[in-house]
Nucleic acid binder design. Structure first.
Length: 318
DNA sequence: CAGTAG
DNA sequence: CGGCCTTACTG
DNA sequence: GCCG
């Protein structure tokens, strides 16, 4: 437990196995597959021959594993905190509610645990996106508001909403050059109409900020007329960083990682704030980034610069 | 600083 | 053996 | 955990 590197290896092996056109009858059949090494092959062999995995038996019946993984599903609670809560003697979500060591965000995540876990039908996301666009353009005409994430990738239901925002007038709506900033107004307006309900994280870098370029809001919202809470993220990018922001928040994770690794191999650094030319950092292991970001106005520019065939959003479900 | 999230 | 997306906030 |  608590070894996410290792669990990630299992995670990577899953789609590899799922995509096999045949049923595995022997460990030899997975011998040369990527992401599957000796250890996983041994496990597969055991499952094939005995029908089960002895190692797993303990896990499923282990109260600790069950409690800690449950706690870890609460927003804001990671492996370390989950383990601490268990060691305090907590076993159920009800136990956690009595614990006063939880942060406000964690308490909120706990309070709406069942709500947040509900998936949102695509057409409802679509309506909420429209609502956000209406409210947004009322504050700032010409603002661009797009719902990314699995919604943009065409999924029929979404776990949350990733809203990516920019404005195309040459100014930098997330930098110190803007007095009040768009996001605080937007959030306030959305609270006024009872769309945004609880805050999780609200970070404004814009006032005198580090000019990191991105204002972010994480919180809970409701579909108009309902009380069911959904997770929503709002991110505001300057126009020159919008393409990389939209790309990153559309995902999926596998594509993001693939693009970032590709970027590095070609002498770039890619993240949600832009595509940069890597600099030769003298001391550090990792390549630094140049100030100059490669000019990517649209997502396609990022793909093109990296020499990666362009994928439409619905093709990014890797 | 560790922990957590995206 | 060491790397395995990076960056920024909360407490 | 897998990979080089």
């Amino acid at each position: 437990m608590g070894d996410d590197r290792r669990s990630f290896s299992y995670y990577k092996a899953i789609p590899v196995i799922e995509k096999l056109p045949f049923k595995i009858e022997s460990g030899d059949q997975v011998k040369n597959l990527p992401a599957i090494g000796k250890s996983l092959r041994d496990h597969i062999n055991e499952i094939v021959t005995t029908g089960k995995l002895s190692k797993l038996e303990h896990f499923e019946n282990d109260e600790k594993v069950r409690a800690v993984s449950l706690f870890g599903e609460v927003w804001g609670v990671g492996p370390a905190t989950a383990l601490k809560l268990y060691d305090k003697g907590h076993r159920t979500l009800d136990d956690l509610q009595k614990d006063d060591s939880l942060t406000y965000a964690q308490r909120t995540g706990l309070k709406f645990f069942d709500d947040i876990r509900q998936r949102i039908p695509r057409h409802e996301v679509s309506e909420m996106e429209k609502l956000l666009q209406e409210v947004g353009k009322d504050i700032l005409p010409g603002v661009t508001i797009v719902c990314g994430g699995s919604y943009r990738r065409g999924k029929s239901s979404c776990g949350d909403m990733d809203i990516v925002i920019t404005h195309d007038d040459g100014k930098r709506y997330t930098s110190k050059h803007v007095k009040p900033g768009f996001l605080p107004k937007f959030v306030q307006r959305l609270k006024d109409i009872n769309f945004l309900r609880e805050d999780l994280i609200f970070s404004i870098n814009s006032i005198e900020g580090t000019d990191s370029g991105v204002d972010t809001y994480f919180g809970l919202c409701t579909y108009p007329g309902r009380e069911l809470r959904h997770r929503i993220d709002l991110k505001v990018y300057p126009r020159n960083r919008y393409a990389s922001g939209l790309l990153a928040w559309t995902g999926n994770d596998v594509l993001n990682r693939r693009l970032r690794i590709l970027a590095e191999s070609k002498g770039y650094v890619l993240d949600d704030t832009g595509l940069y030319l890597a600099t030769q950092s003298s001391g550090g292991k990792r390549a630094g980034r140049s100030e100059a970001i490669v000019n990517c106005h649209e997502e396609k520019d990022v793909f093109d610069t990296l020499g990666f065939p362009y994928l439409e959003p619905h093709e990014r479900n890797l």
